[in-house]
Design a protein around this nucleic acid. Structure first.
Lengths: 204, 204
DNA sequence: GGGTAAACGTACTGTAGGTACGTACATACC
DNA sequence: GGTATGTACGTACCTACAGTACGTTTACCC
């Protein structure tokens, strides 16, 4: 049994919560960074200076915690990607910037990335979908817009979004664990694939 | 406490094992198909007519069970893909066949696919890599060969393999859960993406 | 100042992974 | 043909963790 030192039961003085939801998520991130993706809820609560029921009150069960942290990471990645390609003309070099920004942001949130992409808990695979959809939604909107603008069928946007996110997820996992490539080099390789690498003709 | 009816402690008469490793994996698949990806080891053992320690003796812990089942599924997919594109000339239509065979085999092993791609257990994300590598290895060999044959750098093969597998994994998960597309239509959409869809020029 | 509701911690339950150990059978050796 | 040893089981336990019921302390309102 873990006991939080220096606190006792009862409503805290001052009419304020001991910790709010955002502070709890911050603490969760710290605990994950320190102990890896397998941290228990109790350890996270301890890191925040509270006990488990507080987490259930503010956030919910382990699945909802995963979702909240996933939304955070997705936000960071989307922000990073947007500022990376802002003002760039659509083309291969913008694609490289997009991919590199993804990789670098994931690398900067390494443990959190591991936690979100599968190391979290005893969850059904439907959760993976929910997590991915945090990234898919904004991407699909952009793709759909672009397809319409260029006179093509936007119906492919959703499938393409899941395809791109899935591609980046597994590739990033591999890269962070057992690859010596730089983010830039890997982004170039992926861009080559997406830029039609599979239909490259033989070099005469 | 679950008790297997009709058996008692002690070495079985007849000098034979009660069940061998393959039968255990068969039972695991049946249990997963029946109860979903969250089945407990004890339920799997019960399905096989034995108790937990037998699973640990034949297969190992939950991680090793995941790996074994993942290898089975990867084998089925690789087989299916090979026979789908056997004799086909390299090109876009072969790519569609490759993708469709992947999707259909996953659909035919729906629950097992869920179990393998994340619904399994309290595992570190490194396991996802190990699982994916079962599919990556043969694919990378083929890609590497093809790149060399066509006079290009084969160094991209590994990254491309993880990219393609990741793309198929997440797309399949989405498709099996919440998409009404046929396997063929989805394969066409993915092929369009891989065939350079991102650099499609505006239709004049 | 008393009553009510809020915000905690304490302590419990249930479940599942993993393991120590006892038991029954086979085989080898004398 | 009896005894020792090793093997293949099931039984019963330990531990860790997710999730929850409940008691306690404080703020707030009249």
């Amino acid at each position: 049994m873990v006991t939080v030192a220096g606190r006792r039961p009862g409503r805290p003085a001052g009419g304020k919560l001991v910790v709010d939801r955002e502070s709890l998520l911050d603490a969760a991130e710290r605990a994950i960074r320190r102990d890896g993706p397998m941290v228990s809820l109790e350890t996270i609560a301890l890191e925040a200076g509270v006990t488990k029921p507080v987490i259930y009150a503010r956030i919910g069960d382990r699945t909802e915690l995963s979702n909240a942290l996933s939304a955070r990471l997705a936000d960071r990645i989307v922000q990073s990607v947007f500022s990376a390609i802002a003002g760039q003309p659509i083309g291969r070099s913008a694609l490289v910037l997009f991919l590199a920004a993804n990789l670098e942001t994931a690398a900067g949130n390494r443990e959190l990335f591991f936690y979100v992409t599968g190391g979290s808990a005893d969850d059904s695979p439907q959760r993976s979908l929910l997590l991915a959809s945090n990234s898919v939604t904004p991407l699909a909107a952009q793709l759909s817009q672009w397809r319409t603008d260029t006179g093509h069928d936007p119906a492919v946007a959703e499938a393409w979004s899941y395809a791109l996110i899935g591609m980046l997820q597994l590739t990033t996992l591999w890269w962070l664990n057992q690859s010596a490539l730089t983010a830039r080099d890997l982004a170039e390789q992926l861009a080559e694939l997406l830029w039609g690498g599979l239909r490259t003709p033989p070099i005469a």
